[in-house]
Design a protein around this nucleic acid. Structure first.
Lengths: 169, 169
DNA sequence: ACAATGACTTGCAATTTGCAAGTTAGTTTT
DNA sequence: AAAACTAACTTGCAAATTGCAAGTCATTGT
């Protein structure tokens, strides 16, 4: 038989396993914020705009840490503060996020400019490489300014153009 | 402001919107079964191996229909029977599923042979084209035999190899 | 010392989920 | 044509999860 559910798993299908780990309304948003919005602290996530409850946030951070998707490290300067960061396992979710972005943009009324999302889709590999590069270099600059609720909607164009056309390797 | 939540939406981010539609433990599994296992009826989903409760299944089918991701059509021969089918909006989720498959296979202990998943990942565009072709032609042959719990585990190899190397366009 | 801050807990009420056990409408069997 | 079957759902709860609001608790700034 192809399906030997591991311990506590409903099936051995990788898709099912993935969904058991982050198949909910919040986990991937936290990962998105870590990946492309440069968020690192509890407070930033809590105030991220979608309005996650703090108990749910705390729970999700624990789960993601337990799953090896994020790590936490205390800051020296202010030891109250915990910095969350994606692991490599976490940054490997970039393709999933990109696909969700593209699908949502194509099929739902979202406020991300379609033309720009299509450009990201067309340059998939470069975009993913750039996201990974930022992760490796701990570059916290938001990748997709229009994903941030607090960004001025007008001149984000410049940065994106740059992203798509730099380092085409 | 970049974030104008539409009616009843927590934010305008396409990722968030996507997750509000199918961000749960079951929706994408149903879509997977429609897409690659050739499932079409309520009963097949209910007995799919992961063990979804029938009330949840009924709920998810309604939601997916309401979201325009699946349609249902009654069969003429047996009008009790409802055939579910992905819409184009639904088949457009293929990239997401493929990414989940690849991520789960790489980072978790799943029972899908890694080598084969890596081959799928390497031939991403062809695989997606093949999945779409099957959808267009209503070809119900399971694409990924080892995803089906009820398949004999030994000779599924043949069909997969064929998939990866046919119609390289 | 005292107020402020960051990262969580805790207490509940309100949903949502998971079984198990119906229902209903078409279909086959006798 | 009545009885038995079957596909696709409902319904009834108990149990788990979620969403708010309101605490803790260990630093830090003043």
């Amino acid at each position: 038989m192809g399906a030997k559910p591991g311990p506590n798993r409903r099936s051995g299908c990788p898709v099912s396993i993935s969904l058991e780990i982050f198949g909910d309304r919040w986990s991937l948003l936290i990962i998105r914020d870590l990946m492309v919005r440069g968020f690192r602290t509890f407070k930033e996530f809590a105030a991220a705009g979608e309005g996650i409850a703090t108990n749910i946030l705390a729970d999700r951070l624990q789960r993601l840490k337990a799953a090896g998707i994020i790590t936490e490290e205390a800051e020296k300067a202010d030891r109250r503060r915990v910095y969350y960061r994606l692991t490599e396992k976490g940054i490997d979710l970039a393709p999933v996020l990109l696909d969700l972005l593209v699908w949502g943009s194509r099929h739902e009324t979202a406020d991300a400019p379609c033309s720009i999302v299509e450009e990201l889709a067309a340059n998939r590999e470069q975009v993913l490489a750039e996201v990974r590069r930022r992760w490796e270099q701990r570059d916290p600059t938001p990748v997709l300014p229009w994903l941030s609720g607090s960004v001025d909607g007008n001149r984000s164009q410049a940065r994106k153009k740059k992203l798509n056309h730099t380092r085409v390797s």
